[in-house]
């Protein structure tokens, strides 16, 4: 992936249903999460997010981890205590 420019634009994270895995195309985040039930044993919703990774600003996509085990951890905020 290409390193993104550290511009003032804030590209939003993009969530895509696995069924319509349109890669590359930046589209509005799908607000209606219907049909994307989160459940063990079901596909994880794919997403692409702006990210910081070892000194670079590079987007991260869940689908780039296919073939590997991956843990996705959400947390309330940077500089929070726990």
């Amino acid at each position: 992936m290409q390193e993104g420019k550290a511009s003032c634009e804030r590209p939003a994270a993009v969530v895509a249903a696995m069924e319509s895995a349109e890669t590359g195309a930046r589209e509005e985040p799908k607000k209606e999460a219907k049909g994307m039930t989160i459940m063990v044993g079901r596909k994880a919703p794919d997403f692409t997010a702006p990210a910081y990774h070892k000194g670079s600003f590079v987007p991260v996509s869940l689908s780039s981890f296919l073939g590997k085990w991956v843990v996705v951890c959400f947390y309330p905020g940077d500089f929070s205590f726990v």
Binding site: M18, K30, V40, K43, D46, L66, K68, V71, F74
Partner: peptide
């Protein structure tokens, strides 16, 4: 999309997902 966004607080709560090589949770 993952059911962990708190609309009132405006943050993602502490959700952790183990996803296998097929992309299955």
């Amino acid at each position: 999309a993952y059911g962990v966004y708190d609309e009132v607080a405006g943050v993602d709560v502490r959700g952790r997902f183990i996803i296998d090589p097929d992309g299955v949770i």
